[in-house]
Amino acid sequence: MDNDKIGQIIDKYQGEASSLIQILLDIQHENHWLPRSALEVVSKKLNLPLSKVQQTATFYKAFSVVPIGRHEIHVCKGTACHVNGAQDLLEEVEEVTGIKPGETDPDAKFSLKTVNCLGRCGLGPVIEIDGKTHARMSPAEISDALKKYE
């Protein structure tokens, strides 16, 4: 993500330090993660200590400070999904991809994240791959579902 783009986002919020979270959210949406270089630009432009920007980037759940792979897998850990077997599902995803939540595989193919609740509790357990919902998943279906992604 280039600095001009980050500059445009910051300008949208009139460079106000109080908009730090909104600015980081916009960068996260655009770039899918927050590289250190982006945090440095934000820190400079908002005149905030870099440490404070890093603190914010690691405090809130929406941000990732590690690179994201080509495909994002979100396993819903909402309560309804939990009672319907989300843990088994997560373990199977970990097994197939070889990564744990918060990680990206070495080929940068998949990133895995658990989310608190996708709000589709009637369809649980639910996983989301690149924003597409897979409802009522069973561990046996994981391998096939992930095969489709390159």
Partner: peptide
């Protein structure tokens, strides 16, 4: 609209307002 960065603790009113002011919740 003030979009929050995610975190259950933001349901607490002082954390919610801190987050809206751009600070840690």
């Amino acid at each position: 609209i003030s979009i929050d960065g995610g975190g259950y603790v933001l349901g607490e009113s002082t954390a919610l307002m801190a987050s809206m002011e751009g600070r840690i919740g």
